[in-house]
Design a protein around this nucleic acid. Structure first.
Lengths: 246, 246
DNA sequence: CGCGGCCTTGACAATCGTCAAAACATGTGG
DNA sequence: CCACATGTTTTGACGATTGTCAAGGCCGCG
């Protein structure tokens, strides 16, 4: 039932070559990584790791999307991260996974067994530096999300999420500064709710409200059009557009 | 009006020597750090950095407590981190501060000008590694806090905060596994509210409720006694005590 | 004593969650 | 092709939690 195994691809041809943990590597360092890497694919919906499980690998998302979630005993769940292509999974220096990682679309990961990766990292400052840089970026993102979770209204939360997804989409397929955008929502209403600390009913209602007020329009349930990105940023309550318009 | 300048202290005598960014350094590396470090002190209430300001130093908290906050245009504010002794302030590789940093008690910091520190870090894997480790810990803490902000009730939020402070206090002054504890709350009700994504009135009400229900008792406004830590963990909704009881 | 912070408490309102029903899409098997 | 089952989304009615506004208490300090 697994997706087919992926054949070995040269790092030089890798689509995330310049953004992943290997971004700063020289060609010899890349060869060392190439020697220990392997690809794994996951189907949409498949769990990658359960919180508490022993993790004997780390890796980078090559394509597809995964979510990082935490759950309480009674089932309440909170998404704590969204993993997109080039994002790193796993923590060198720790055995157990701290979160559930689930593929929400079909996914391909570039994996390394943890032990050899840790050894290589100890000898390769370029990898360690890049990982530090990526971790600091994730920390900033997590802290920005704390403001969303702690202080924004349901409507602002939805607008904030749409803003983030739009921004990511724009960075993947640059098209210059434009005022309107259309993109796919890679999350179910429930996943959106788990990200935003809301119920799925509230998410649905606020999506309808934003549609009714002309901030967005929907084609099907998942495709979103934003006629005026500036308006969306205002709705998100952000004091700036995060450099989106330029 | 500033607190007096602190004289130069040898790293060997530093109280945070084994936990800060320099924890892994050998003696020669420590000498290099010692050569570029300087101490700064701040009085309770003083701002250390405003979000957006240029930051020309980084450093470690030696003593005292500071808060990291984000604010929206309309004044809503969310605390995104609590800086305790040994925590690192600033981000190598970035000029502007992303958050407001404010001393909530009298504080002493061990500072480095950013440029020399960055250069030293490039040559000293022990520093870079330790900083990565600390950043990963902070990321975990931020993600754990996302669950608190997104999914917990007001009562659970308060209990979670008390749990964290109790745990930190216990790690500073170890006393073995005990079932009851007393500690000082280093935050005003407003600061607690900003941490928890609540209003100060709700914080006050829930503190009163926990007192009424015998989960805590108060001596003055700031000193908290917990007769049964297990009960507090339950109230926090955590599925474990985080290794506190042992 | 009186002032200013900080905290508590009350009354009321607003937001968001809960429970329930129904619309809609998608896939399976007859 | 239809019937049916399943999963997702929308919408409504209602209730609970939390926020807002307001008043008053406690405490240290000039």
């Amino acid at each position: 039932m697994n997706a087919p195994t992926i054949s070995h691809i040269s790092c030089a041809d890798c689509p995330i070559r310049h953004r992943a943990v290997c971004a700063r590597c020289e060609s010899d360092e890349l060869e060392a990584l190439d020697a220990i890497k392997y690809y794994r694919s996951y189907e949409a919906g498949q769990p990658i790791i359960w919180s508490g499980d022993v993790m004997n690998f780390v890796g980078s998302v090559v394509s597809g999307i995964a979510t990082l979630t935490q759950t309480m005993e009674d089932g309440r769940t909170q998404m704590v991260g969204l993993l997109l292509p080039s994002d790193f999974v796993g923590r060198p220096g720790r055995d157990g996974a701290a979160y559930n990682v689930v593929a929400t679309t079909d996914m391909v990961m570039c994996c390394f067994r943890k032990k050899p990766f840790e050894e290589l990292m100890a000898q390769t400052p370029h990898i360690a530096h890049r990982l530090l840089e990526m971790t600091l970026d994730e920390l900033d993102a997590a802290r920005e999300w704390m403001l969303v979770l702690g202080r924004k209204t349901a409507r602002e939360k939805i607008a904030s999420l749409l803003t983030i997804i739009a921004r990511r989409d724009a960075s993947l397929t640059p098209r210059g500064a434009v005022n309107s955008m259309t993109f796919d929502l890679p999350l179910t209403r429930e996943a959106m709710a788990d990200y935003l600390g809301l119920t799925l009913e509230t998410v649905s209602r606020q999506m309808s409200a934003l549609k009714r007020d002309g901030v967005i329009s929907l084609e099907g349930k998942r495709r979103v059009s934003v006629p005026d990105m500036g308006r969306l940023f205002e709705e998100a309550g952000d004091d700036s557009d995060g450099g989106f318009m330029s």
